[in-house]
Design a protein around this nucleic acid. Sequence first.
DNA 1: CTTGACCTTCACATTAGTGGCAGGGTCCAC
DNA 2: GTGGACCCTGCCACTAATGTGAAGGTCAAG
Lengths: 129, 129
Amino acid sequence: MRIGELAKKTGVPARMLRYYEEQGLISPRRLDNGYRMYDDYLVDRVKKIRGLVDSGIPTRIISSILPCLDQPQTIVVKNAEPGLRELLVTERDRMSDKIDFLIHNRDSITRYIEAIDAAATQEQSLEAG
Amino acid sequence: MRIGELAKKTGVPARMLRYYEEQGLISPRRLDNGYRMYDDYLVDRVKKIRGLVDSGIPTRIISSILPCLDQPQTIVVKNAEPGLRELLVTERDRMSDKIDFLIHNRDSITRYIEAIDAAATQEQSLEAG
DNA sequence: CTTGACCTTCACATTAGTGGCAGGGTCCAC
DNA sequence: GTGGACCCTGCCACTAATGTGAAGGTCAAG
């Protein structure tokens, strides 16, 4: 598909798709007329990139972990560069920290919302009573 | 405590503490000489801010949800502004999405690391055999 | 064969989050 | 009473991510 369609399917503006390409996150083929051509699997990949960016992970790091995120374990595990494992562990742990942190705070917000609702309910019963 | 001590305790540079203040996230008292004075409870608050920023949440939004994150439910639930609940729900859901997303990808990374280790182990047994 | 919807590159602008420094005040300890 | 460690404000600069728009090529449909 061309860039406009991919943008529509992912919700990521074409501008950003070109930017991600520039950062080495995706490498669309080119048609004879110069247009970018995106394979279907890139839809998921772009969504993944968005999610990672939105979670505060810079593109520089995304580019190094992205190949490890494709589900059917890519053939690439062979001759793993020595630094790669360490990097993955670091990033994995960082993600775990974020997860724990987000869960904790999300639950706080949920409790707060419940408190608001409880207060509203109570107020209503006061009005009625 | 003064800004240097808070910086040390939180790992957040003084420069950033001033920035967070500018963004309305913390409001230290001032000594007669103009020095900022931070109460102890701000240590946790600053850590919370860091975590949220690192998770890709902009300070603008942090400032609106931060009051709802203090653990002993603040007295503030009363006269909840109408938009607040909606905003909290939105942000809570956004956080839930991030959590799911991060868990999924973290697990992918973990599997990849395990694959690396398995490959290394296998290689060793080949050498030995 | 022209119009409109796409696409291209290039470039400039903005925002958020940072880092860093200069010029100057405060205060403790020697 | 001086030096060093701390604080202040203000400003300039940088990066990453993003918006926007100009100037121009492609192509299908009328």
